[in-house]
Lab assay of single mutants.
Amino acid sequence: TEKQERAIEYIRRLGYSEEEARRILKKANGNPDLAKEIARRIG
């Protein structure tokens, strides 16, 4: 989804690889607090 793409872009800007960014997002899917934090940061 567009939100996922924005989140991946944001995480990659922090210096993670695409693969790492996707792994972090997968974790965020099972972790509402982390997901909220990422969403808050990407606006």
Results as ranks from 00 to 15, higher is better:
Thr1Glu: 11
Thr1Lys: 14
Thr1Trp: 13
Thr1Met: 12
Thr1Ser: 13
Thr1Pro: 10
Glu2Arg: 13
Glu2Ser: 13
Lys3His: 13
Lys3Leu: 15
Lys3Trp: 08
Gln4Ile: 15
Gln4Pro: 05
Gln4His: 09
Gln4Val: 14
Gln4Phe: 10
Glu5Phe: 08
Glu5Pro: 03
Glu5Leu: 13
Glu5His: 10
Glu5Asp: 11
Glu5Ser: 10
Glu5Cys: 12
Glu5Ala: 12
Glu5Tyr: 08
Glu5Arg: 14
Glu5Gly: 07
Arg6Glu: 15
Arg6Cys: 13
Arg6Tyr: 08
Arg6Ser: 14
Arg6Gly: 11
Arg6Lys: 14
Arg6Ile: 09
Arg6Val: 08
Ala7Ser: 06
Ala7Lys: 02
Ala7Phe: 07
Ala7Asn: 03
Ala7Gln: 03
Ala7Pro: 02
Ala7His: 03
Ala7Gly: 03
Ala7Ile: 11
Ile8Gln: 02
Ile8Cys: 05
Ile8Trp: 05
Glu9Trp: 05
Glu9Ile: 06
Glu9Gln: 08
Glu9Tyr: 04
Glu9Met: 06
Glu9His: 06
Tyr10Thr: 10
Tyr10His: 12
Tyr10Ala: 14
Tyr10Val: 12
Tyr10Arg: 06
Tyr10Trp: 07
Tyr10Asn: 08
Tyr10Ser: 11
Tyr10Cys: 09
Tyr10Lys: 06
Tyr10Met: 09
Ile11Arg: 00
Ile11Leu: 12
Ile11Gly: 00
Ile11Gln: 00
Ile11Tyr: 03
Ile11Trp: 04
Ile11His: 00
Ile11Val: 02
Ile11Lys: 00
Ile11Pro: 01
Arg12His: 05
Arg12Pro: 01
Arg12Lys: 15
Arg12Leu: 12
Arg12Ala: 05
Arg12Asn: 03
Arg13His: 14
Arg13Met: 15
Arg13Phe: 12
Arg13Ser: 15
Arg13Lys: 15
Arg13Val: 08
Arg13Gln: 15
Leu14His: 03
Leu14Tyr: 04
Leu14Phe: 06
Leu14Ser: 02
Leu14Trp: 04
Leu14Ile: 05
Leu14Asn: 01
Gly15Pro: 00
Gly15Ile: 00
Gly15Glu: 01
Gly15Tyr: 00
Gly15Met: 01
Gly15Val: 00
Gly15Ser: 01
Tyr16Leu: 06
Tyr16Pro: 00
Tyr16Ala: 02
Tyr16His: 05
Tyr16Gln: 01
Ser17Phe: 02
Ser17Asp: 05
Ser17Lys: 04
Ser17Leu: 03
Ser17Glu: 03
Ser17Thr: 14
Ser17Tyr: 02
Glu18Trp: 07
Glu18Met: 08
Glu18Pro: 06
Glu18Lys: 06
Glu18Asp: 11
Glu18Arg: 06
Glu18Phe: 06
Glu18Ser: 06
Glu19His: 09
Glu19Ile: 09
Glu19Met: 10
Glu19Ala: 12
Glu19Asn: 09
Glu20Phe: 08
Glu20Trp: 06
Glu20Lys: 04
Glu20Gln: 10
Glu20Gly: 05
Glu20Ile: 07
Ala21Pro: 00
Ala21Asn: 00
Ala21Glu: 00
Arg22Gly: 04
Arg22Ser: 05
Arg22Glu: 06
Arg22Pro: 00
Arg22Ile: 10
Arg22Cys: 08
Arg22Trp: 11
Arg22Asn: 07
Arg23Pro: 00
Arg23Thr: 12
Arg23Tyr: 12
Arg23Glu: 15
Arg23Ile: 13
Arg23Ser: 13
Arg23Ala: 14
Arg23Gln: 14
Arg23Lys: 13
Ile24Glu: 00
Ile24Thr: 01
Ile24Ala: 02
Ile24Tyr: 03
Ile24Val: 04
Ile24Asp: 00
Ile24Leu: 07
Leu25Ser: 01
Leu25Trp: 05
Leu25Gly: 00
Leu25His: 01
Lys26Asp: 13
Lys26Leu: 12
Lys26Glu: 14
Lys26Trp: 09
Lys26Tyr: 09
Lys26Asn: 12
Lys27His: 13
Lys27Val: 14
Lys27Ala: 14
Lys27Tyr: 15
Ala28His: 03
Ala28Val: 06
Ala28Lys: 01
Asn29Thr: 04
Asn29Gly: 14
Asn29Arg: 11
Asn29Met: 12
Asn29Trp: 08
Asn29Val: 05
Gly30Arg: 04
Gly30Leu: 06
Gly30Cys: 05
Gly30Lys: 04
Gly30Ser: 05
Asn31Thr: 03
Asn31Ile: 07
Asn31Trp: 06
Asn31Cys: 06
Asn31Val: 06
Asn31Arg: 07
Pro32Thr: 09
Pro32His: 06
Pro32Asn: 04
Pro32Gln: 05
Pro32Trp: 07
Pro32Phe: 09
Pro32Lys: 03
Pro32Gly: 07
Asp33Ile: 09
Asp33Cys: 06
Asp33His: 10
Asp33Val: 10
Asp33Gly: 09
Leu34Lys: 09
Leu34Met: 09
Leu34Ala: 08
Leu34Arg: 09
Leu34Cys: 07
Leu34Trp: 08
Leu34His: 07
Leu34Thr: 07
Ala35Met: 04
Ala35Asp: 01
Ala35Tyr: 03
Ala35Phe: 03
Ala35Gly: 03
Ala35Arg: 02
Lys36Arg: 11
Lys36Ser: 06
Lys36Gln: 09
Lys36Trp: 07
Lys36Glu: 08
Lys36His: 04
Glu37Trp: 06
Glu37Ser: 11
Glu37Lys: 14
Glu37Tyr: 07
Glu37Ile: 13
Ile38Gly: 02
Ile38Lys: 03
Ile38Thr: 04
Ile38Glu: 05
Ile38His: 04
Ile38Ser: 03
Ile38Val: 06
Ile38Phe: 04
Ala39Lys: 02
Ala39Pro: 01
Ala39Met: 03
Ala39Ile: 05
Ala39His: 02
Arg40Pro: 03
Arg40Ile: 13
Arg40Asn: 09
Arg40Phe: 05
Arg40Glu: 14
Arg41Leu: 10
Arg41Val: 10
Arg41Trp: 06
Arg41Gly: 11
Arg41Ile: 11
Ile42Lys: 12
Ile42Gly: 14
Ile42Ala: 12
Ile42Tyr: 09
Ile42Asn: 12
Ile42Met: 15
Ile42His: 14
Ile42Ser: 12
Gly43Gln: 15
Gly43Ser: 15
Gly43Val: 15
Gly43Asn: 15
